[in-house]
Design a binder for these strands. Structure first.
Lengths: 226, 226
DNA sequence: GTCTATATAATGATAGAC
DNA sequence: GTCTATCATTATATAGAC
């Protein structure tokens, strides 16, 4: 559970012999991830070792630069996912990514997307939910996971609570611009693994009355006042 | 569970016969809540019906204006909470607040604080966790809630997942500046009540192996490599 | 392709009249 | 207390030389 740096494939090329365009894009991914999307173009240019004007020359606007970063990161994630497709455990791929040193910038970037909203955030959320659903479905078939009345809703809830609680920890504990993403993941694990596992295993409510009342309520709604 | 607009006390005075200072502060609460803390001072002034210079005259800087808003909102929340102290059900006070029309601006503001981080966000989070812990503790004593190995951690997890999932929905579904907070709450309920209740009642994992393995792991850690 | 220099726009904040 | 007018800063984006 703790030392599975088993992501084999090529760590994305970050060597110095890249085109300026690629260097700018990589610098932008780093800056956006560390400091959020409010980071000035000047800083991205500085990190890439070029002038601010060259950034605009290659990408037109800051918004387009961001889109290019999103596409690039998504492509990498997709590659890693399809590459580890043989691994049964799709769900924890993101977790492994978070622990692997060389993918830290991409994880930070994805996190900023989740924080800022937008198309990529929605896509990411859907992917997380779909992965969780498939994973749980396999568990149900294997008998290790309880079946659900609505597996899709359950997966979405798990994605929202998992990602959301992480989002919460970051905004609470890292008010400054720079986020040590791996540290947050560690804090999250230390603080929440016990209660989560406990609740996932034993539940929270001692009796079924609330659930039954809700099921009765939705099966026979009083009146629709929308 | 669905029509408890039972918050009796005075809806905060929003009439037109307020000092300009109070009108500016109220306008700021509205703007910050709807549009986030990036809203220009000019817009706050416009909504308050005064010049931007008057805003600075009364509050010095935008940051101080924000602090004044935070203090004002916290004072109102505190009043409502102490007022409904006789109600056993402290946890759902915030939920009722969210549904009550006249408190919507304050809830939106609090949400923006949670989204932006800072001192108030931490305070809010601690309050949520403390309320939940007290509520669950009463449930444990009454026999309706299962006991936990670490009630405080459980309460914090519930606060983080609850607030975090809401945060997630907002950033995903409301990319624009304006947020219809009550609508998000409604979506959240419709989408997540079933899976949450199901999981809280029946659990997720069919057997105890993961929990037991974790408990064994923490009781006898392999080696500390920090 | 890459740079320096500059235009343009937005925003927080100030000066000073009334 | 309240306003108009303005400043200073910062950001994105452009123009044009090399």
């Amino acid at each position: 559970m703790m030392n599975m740096n088993s992501i084999s494939g090529k760590p994305p090329d970050r060597s110095e012999d890249l085109t300026a365009r690629a260097r700018i894009r990589d610098a932008a991914v780093d800056c956006f991830g560390q400091r959020g999307f409010d980071v000035p173009v000047r800083e991205i240019a500085e990190r890439a070792g070029v002038s601010p004007a060259l950034v605009m020359h290659h990408f037109g606007t800051k918004a387009k630069l961001r889109v290019a970063c999103e596409e690039h990161v998504m492509r990498i994630i997709r590659e890693v996912k399809t590459e580890s497709i043989t691994t049964k455990d799709q769900t924890t791929v993101l977790h492994h990514l978070a622990e692997a040193e060389e993918f830290a910038p991409y994880m930070a970037f994805l996190f900023r997307c989740l924080q800022a909203g937008g198309d990529l955030a929605r896509t990411l959320y859907e992917h997380m939910a779909a992965d969780i659903e498939a994973y749980l479905d396999a568990g149900v078939k294997a008998g290790t996971v309880r079946p659900s009345r609505n597996p899709e809703a359950r997966a979405r809830w798990l994605a929202a609570t998992g990602g959301g609680s992480l989002l919460m920890l970051v905004t609470l504990r890292h008010p400054g611009p720079d986020v040590d993403f791996r540290r947050v993941i560690r804090e999250w694990s230390e603080e929440f693994t016990l209660p989560a596992l406990e609740l996932y295993t034993e539940g929270l409510l001692a009796d079924r009355s609330m659930l039954d009342a809700y099921l009765l309520y939705v099966s026979d709604p009083p009146e629709d006042s929308s």
